[in-house]
Write a protein that binds this DNA or RNA. Structure first.
Length: 431
RNA sequence: GACCCCAUCGUCUAGCCUGGUCUAGGACAAGAGCUUUUCAAGCUCUCGACGCGGGUUCAAAUCCCGCUGGGGUCACCA
């Protein structure tokens, strides 16, 4: 039975790098008849926290990775101790200050990494390795080996930062008489500016990206592209498709820089392809978070609004940010926009437009457009001379969906109120 | 510093294994234009890379060596 594992340490949230490692393990297992297990490496009792375990598990679920079993290292302390004592008995380790320490045999170790090929180490550079600390808890490398062996892990897919742990671990496998598994070391993900990813260089945890309005399928697609290519110049690859094409040996050797622009582009793509009803459910929490009471609005109306924006947003949060004027009663227009668009007196134009709209028999997008265009023609001005100021007056923004659709969905009442409000303000200024 | 890993446009990559079809392909970003109802949408176009130096070979992005550069690891953290 082929079995792989993802082994996070609950001393922090699931970050981008961890998620990518989990993805590759999950893909590896699910693309063949293999098992994918989770192992929580919580041997550092002081730093490990329950909240982190929950956060990691939730993030993995959110990304769509399911697992066949979950183990906790904190429950295996007896086992580690037992194996360590066996090594002491066999003379391969000794006790010093209550700690169990491994005697490093001098030899060359060769591994055949699935991604890197052959890597050779000389154990002469290794110091004696602590197996069990004086408080009876195991060290990372030892617990890792004992678990990987007893949990019958056949392939270890992990980050490049573990390459230098590998010779130490192989020594333990050999001393304990275990079969050495196959290794595959994935390149690291670098921050956009280069160097290690850190909070200072932008969001790092999966939950942050979730809160930022990214779709799990977009994140998975992006992470997949970061270090693996399906070939044929394909950029959009769903997890389902990747399952058919995945091959760990085709994974890249090069560390990749995280590029938020490309993630945004992929996210926009998935948003465009999400069925409207689903998109609504996904956007809903972000609207509620902004304090908009959705009970005030008809469901179909909200769906129409989202449809208006579906093709132009790149994050779920964009809708709540860009379409805010539909939900708010008052409207705040920045001084900058006022200066740019209302420096010319438009009292007459705004009042006339308000009159025309008010007297409209049927309030449809087409009727709004024709009365708007008629007015523009009568006034002898260019369409955009009125479009832009009106857009700002109604939305507080320079950009958005088509103006007539915006006017329609804003509704006659709010539309007239905002138009008149600006006209009055300009009147006052003139006086 | 020692050991290890890596090296194609600004970024992600295809090509490398099995040299020639590569005046190096795609995507993101950027720039220009169109769309004249905006752009943060769409379409079109442009810019832009084999790190350097040696080999091997008729021929090297592709194979070999060195250098340089970047990264990782050197804990009784994981």
């Amino acid at each position: 039975m082929t079995r792989v594992r993802f082994a996070p340490s609950p001393t922090g949230n699931l970050h981008i790098g961890g998620a990518r490692t989990a993805l590759f393990n999950w893909l590896f297992a699910r693309s063949k008849k293999a098992e994918f297990i989770l192992r929580i490496e919580d041997t550092d009792v002081k730093r490990s926290q329950k909240e982190y375990i929950d956060e990691i598990l939730n993030s993995l679920k959110w990304l769509g990775f399911d697992w066949d079993a979950i183990y906790y290292q904190s429950k295996n302390f007896d086992k580690y101790l037992e194996f360590a004592q066996r090594l002491v008995k066999e003379g391969k380790a000794y006790i010093e200050d209550k700690a169990v320490i491994f005697k490093v045999p001098q030899k060359k170790i060769k591994i055949n990494d699935l991604i890197h090929g052959e890597i050779e180490f000389d154990t002469a550079t290794l110091k004696p390795q602590v197996l069990i600390k004086s408080d009876e808890s195991p060290t990372y490398n030892f617990a890792c080996v004992v678990d990987d062996a007893t949990q019958e892990i056949t392939h270890i897919i992990r980050g490049d930062d573990h390459i230098s742990n590998t010779p130490k671990q192989i020594l333990f496998y050999e001393a304990l008489g275990f079969t050495v598994p196959v290794f595959a070391h994935l390149p690291l993900i670098l921050a956009t500016a280069g160097g290690r990813m850190s909070k200072r260089k932008g969001a790092t945890s999966i939950s942050e990206y979730r809160a930022l309005g990214y779709l799990p399928e977009a994140l998975v697609n992006y992470l997949l592209l970061l270090g693996w290519s399906p070939g044929e110049n394909q950029e959009i690859v769903t997890a389902k498709e990747a399952l058919k094409k995945f091959n760990i040996e085709k994974a890249n050797k090069t560390a990749a820089a995280f590029d938020i622009n490309k993630l945004d582009w992929i996210n926009a793509h998935y948003i465009k392809n999400t069925p409207l009803e689903d998109l609504f459910e996904k956007i809903k929490p972000f609207l509620e978070q902004k304090g908009y009471d959705l009970k005030d609005f008809d469901r179909q109306y909200l769906l129409n609004l989202i449809k208006l924006y579906q093709g132009r947003i790149s994050k779920l949060t964009d809708f709540a940010d860009w379409a805010d004027f539909f939900f708010k009663d008052g409207l705040v227009i920045s001084e900058e926009l006022k200066e740019k668009h209302f420096s010319k007196d438009l009292t007459k134009e705004f009042s006339l437009l308000a009159q025309r709209i008010a007297s409209l028999d049927s309030f449809t997008i087409e009727d709004i457009e024709s009365s708007f265009r008629d007015l523009v023609k009568e006034l002898g001005i260019k369409t955009k001379e009125l479009v832009h100021p009106v857009r700002v007056a109604l939305t507080g923004k320079e950009i958005g969906p088509g103006l007539f659709e915006t006017m329609f969905y804003l509704g006659k009442e709010k539309l007239l109120k905002r138009l008149n409000c600006i006209a009055q303000a300009q009147n006052k200024e003139a006086a």
